[in-house]
Design a protein around this nucleic acid. Structure first.
Lengths: 131, 131
DNA sequence: CTGAATCCAACAAGATACTG
DNA sequence: CAGTATCTTGTTGGATTCAG
């Protein structure tokens, strides 16, 4: 285990945070997570990805797929047919990322409403004090 | 448990991903995670935060703290002394975020080198095919 | 000390058109 | 079908200045 906090593992400021930043730079952008999620069940073709991910542009899909391929999270397979066909699929490492992401999903699901309420309350108190 | 996938819980494209996006919008920016990590052991004053988080500007610290306060992850306590003093600390919900983040930290630590190698390999193969 | 307000640079991302 | 290239725009973040 990389971390050795006694009772509860918490991010140890200096080191870990930078590492997490790299990961967040990896998956923290607008589309990457959607792409990974869309690939979770197996290979998907380029335009199929585009159709399934609502609102993504051709450009962004290409760029993000390149990044994921570069990082070894996604494998690109070109079939040199006419018309050409390209399959994208998660690598083994890409699949291991699904688990950590899931803990975030669960946290999000559990706390979404609380956060929503906190926001409303905060915004109201801000509006009220504007005298 | 919020998810009920049979063998392995994976992000279910439509729903969960949007929820995670909200969370990533929360912590996915450049500084929020550092702030949360810096607050993990208890209240910290504004300028102390600023000192401990290398490179952050006053403006960004303020903005991010406001956001965290708005979302109910951080509590702000103003001591109306002269000069004024403001303490920031994680709320209970804020602390629960540490655990999910940690799974990401661990994934990052485990896979950092692999990713680094993948990148080098990818970049080299790209340079090679540029004929 | 703890901010708020303003201006500005850099980058991310959308729209569109073109190509093998 | 699967991209690339270019242009434009929106957002983020840094620097600086001012205020309670």
């Amino acid at each position: 285990m990389t971390l050795s906090e006694p009772d509860f593992p918490t991010p140890s400021q200096g080191d870990d945070c930078r590492v997490v930043r790299e990961i967040l730079d990896l998956i923290g952008d607008k589309w990457t997570l959607y792409i990974i999620a869309t690939l979770k069940d197996g290979p998907v073709r380029f335009n199929e990805l585009r159709r399934r991910i609502d609102g993504i542009s051709q450009r962004m899909l290409t760029i993000n797929l390149r990044g994921l391929e570069r990082d070894g999270l996604v494998k690109r397979t070109l079939f040199p047919t006419i018309p050409p066909r390209v399959d994208y699929e998660l690598t083994d490492m890409g699949r291991t990322l699904l688990a950590p992401v899931m803990t975030l999903v669960m946290w999000a699901n559990r706390n979404r409403e609380t956060i929503e309420r906190a926001r409303i309350r905060f915004d109201e108190s801000q509006g009220a004090q504007a005298s």
